[in-house]
Design a protein around this nucleic acid. Structure first.
Length: 476
RNA sequence: GGCCCUAUCGUCUAGCGGUUAGGACACCAGGUUCUCAUCCUGGCAACCCGGGUUCGAUUCCCGGUAGGGUCACCA
C-alpha cells in the first residue's frame, strides 16, 4: 500500500486568509491521521502577482497553527525543488511528451485575437471554446508562443469526490487550455498536474473553485498516461452576509490578523475545522489530537458555511479557560498594558488568574487589568450613572467610603478575611451589598467592571486600596 | 448566458423513510451575597416551493426557485 501524501500549494501573492486556510488544515489532518506526509509547495509561476515576503508570511502562519510539513520550503525532501519556478526543466520534459504525441501545439494568435474570438462567441450567445478556433497548421513551438493542450477525447467525464460525491461534466467543460505561457513558465493547470504526479501526491484537496476545471485535468492526466490522484473539492467559507465566497477583496482577515487579535491557534483550528465538519456527535470543542483522530473527508459538509466571528470568539474563550495558568501566562506576554512593565511575575500571574474566566481574546488583557498596574482616573459618572449608587447623596457616599476605609485599614489582608470584614461592614452600615460593594469597587478601580471585590482588593494590596479610597474621598 | 455545485432555527450543524426535528453560537429571562465574565437553569427560533414514489416523506426522484462557483498567457 502506498503512503498517503497530501499537499498545500499556495501561491505567494499575499497572506493566507481565513477563507482558504482549510485547504491546508484538512490535508494536514488527513496526512497526520494516516501517518502519511504533508507537503508544502510554492506555486510561484505568476510573476505579475508575486509578492515579496509572501512565502515567509504563509509559512509563518502554518507554523503558528502547528501545521507542520514533512517536505517543502526550509525543509527539503526527496521530491524537490518545492518552488515551481525552480522546476522549469521538469515541466519542459513533460510538455515535450505531449508535443511528441501531437497533443500540444503552439498558439499562433495574439491575446487580442483570442479576445476577439471570445467576443464573437459572446455576440452569438454561445459559450466560447478555443478549440472551435483551433489553428489548422500551427507553427512549430519555439517557446515564444503559448503552448496549448490539444483536447482530443471530447467526452463527458465522471469522477468521484470523497466530499462532493459523484460528479460529472459534459464536453463543454473541455477545451484547449494553455500549458506553458509565453513567458516560459507553466500555468497552474499544467504545473500542478506534473508536480502532483512527480511528488506522488495521493489526495489533491483544494477549494471548490477548481471543480469546473477538473474535466480538463482528467483529460490531461489521460494524455500524460497518468492515473489521477483522489480529487477533493472543499466547499467555500462564505462572507458573513452569505453573498459570496470569502476572499481578500471583501475584507477577509488574514489568519495572522486573528493571531494579533489574541485568538489562540487551538481555537482557530477548532473553529475552522468545525465549519463544515463534525464527527456526528454533539461535541463542539476538539483539540488538535482529537481532530486528527476523528477527521474524515466523508463527513465534510457539501454546502458553504458563513464565517461567524461570534462563534470564533466564544470558542476562543473556551480555549483560554482550558489553558493552565502557566500556559496562559506564557502566551499573554505581548499583551500586558504598558504600565505592567515593571511589575513582578508573581503579581502578574495573580492578576491573570483573576481575569482568565473573563477573557474572550488575549487582546482584551489591558482593558481588563489596567487598574492593577496604574492609578485609575477618577470618573464620577461611574457613580452618577450607576443604578444603585445614583440614589446616594455625595455626603452619604463619602460617609460610607470613610467607614470602609476604617474597616479595611484594620482588616487582615487576605481575600478571605477581606470578605469577612466586608460582610461585617454590611451589618454595621445596614447597606445592601449592591450599594456598598459597588461603591468600594468603583472607588478603588474606577472601571465599569472588575473581578470579585474581595479578590480585587486583596491583590491590589492595602496601601494601594487605602490610597485610592483617599483619592476618592477627596474627589467626592 | 453555458457548465457545475448546494439548500434544516438569524448563524454553525445532527438527522441518512416513522423523531415531541437534537446540539452549539447569538439573543431573552432567572440563579450564583456588587459589576463584568464564567458556570447552572429555562425560553425564543428551522426542514425553500410544487409535483411524484411510498401506508408514511425533512430524508428518495423530477421540476421550479434561491444561493454559490466557473468560463484568463491567475492560481
Amino acid at each position: 500500500m502506498t503512503a498517503l501524501r497530501t499537499r498545500f500549494a499556495p501561491s505567494p501573492t499575499g497572506y493566507i486568509h481565513v477563507g482558504n486556510i482549510r485547504a491546508a488544515l484538512f490535508p494536514w489532518l488527513l496526512a497526520k491521521q494516516k501517518n502519511g506526509a504533508f507537503i508544502v509547495r510554492i506555486e510561484d509561476t505568476d510573476q505579475a502577482r508575486f509578492v515579496e515576503g509572501a512565502t515567509d508570511l504563509i509559512l509563518e502562519t502554518l507554523s503558528w497553527l502547528g501545521l507542520d510539513w514533512d517536505e517543502g520550503p526550509q525543509k527539503g525532501g526527496n521530491y524537490g525543488p518545492y518552488f515551481q519556478t525552480e522546476r522549469r526543466e521538469i515541466y519542459a520534459a513533460w510538455a515535450q511528451k505531449l508535443i511528441d504525441k501531437g497533443l500540444a501545439y503552439a498558439d499562433p494568435y495574439t491575446q487580442e485575437e483570442v479576445q476577439a474570438f471570445r467576443e464573437e462567441a459572446k455576440a452569438l450567445k454561445k459559450p466560447f471554446l478555443y478549440r472551435d478556433y483551433r489553428p489548422e497548421n500551427p507553427p512549430t513551438w519555439d517557446g515564444t508562443q503559448p503552448l496549448r493542450f490539444k483536447a482530443t477525447n471530447i467526452i463527458r467525464h465522471t469522477w468521484h469526490d470523497p466530499v462532493m460525491g459523484e460528479l460529472s461534466a459534459g464536453p463543454e467543460a473541455l477545451d484547449d487550455f494553455i500549458l506553458i505561457k509565453a513567458d516560459g513558465l507553466p500555468t497552474y493547470n499544467f504545473a500542478h498536474i506534473v508536480d502532483d504526479a512527480e511528488m506522488k501526491i495521493t489526495h489533491v484537496i483544494r477549494g471548490l473553485e477548481y471543480i469546473s476545471s477538473i474535466p480538463r485535468y482528467l483529460s490531461l492526466y489521460d494524455a500524460l498516461d497518468l492515473s489521477p490522484p483522489t480529487l477533493v473539492c472543499l466547499p467555500h467559507i462564505m462572507h458573513p452576509d452569505g453573498k459570496k465566497k470569502l476572499g481578500k477583496r471583501d475584507g477577509a482577515k488574514s489568519v495572522s490578523d486573528y493571531r494579533t487579535d489574541g485568538i489562540l491557534p487551538e481555537a482557530m483550528l477548532n473553529f475552522l475545522a468545525s465549519m463544515g465538519w463534525n464527527d456526528g456527535t454533539e461535541q463542539e470543542l476538539f483539540s488538535k489530537d482529537e481532530l486528527i483522530a476523528k477527521f474524515s473527508l466523508e463527513r465534510v459538509q457539501r454546502s458553504g458555511a458563513r464565517f461567524d466571528e461570534q462563534r470564533l470568539l466564544w470558542m476562543n474563550g473556551q480555549w483560554i479557560r482550558r489553558l493552565t495558568l502557566d500556559d496562559l501566562y506564557s502566551r499573554v506576554r505581548a499583551y500586558w498594558p504598558a504600565s505592567a512593565k515593571n511589575s513582578d511575575e508573581t503579581y502578574k500571574r495573580a492578576v491573570l488568574a483573576l481575569v482568565q474566566d473573563r477573557l474572550k481574546t488575549l487582546a482584551e488583557l489591558p482593558l481588563m487589568t489596567k487598574y492593577f498596574f496604574e492609578k485609575p482616573i477618577v470618573n464620577l459618572t461611574l457613580i452618577t450613572d450607576n443604578k444603585q449608587l445614583k440614589k446616594l447623596t455625595a455626603a452619604e457616599s463619602k460617609n460610607l467610603l470613610g467607614e470602609a476605609r476604617t474597616a479595611l485599614e484594620e482588616c487582615e489582608w487576605s481575600a478571605e478575611s477581606i470578605q469577612f470584614c466586608l460582610n461585617n461592614l454590611l451589618q454595621t452600615t445596614g447597606q445592601k451589598p449592591g450599594t456598598l460593594f459597588s461603591l468600594i469597587r468603583v472607588a478603588t478601580t474606577w472601571a465599569p467592571f472588575s473581578p470579585a471585590l474581595h479578590d480585587t482588593l486583596a491583590l491590589l494590596g492595602r496601601d494601594r486600596v487605602l490610597a485610592r479610597l483617599d483619592t476618592a474621598l477627596l474627589a467626592l
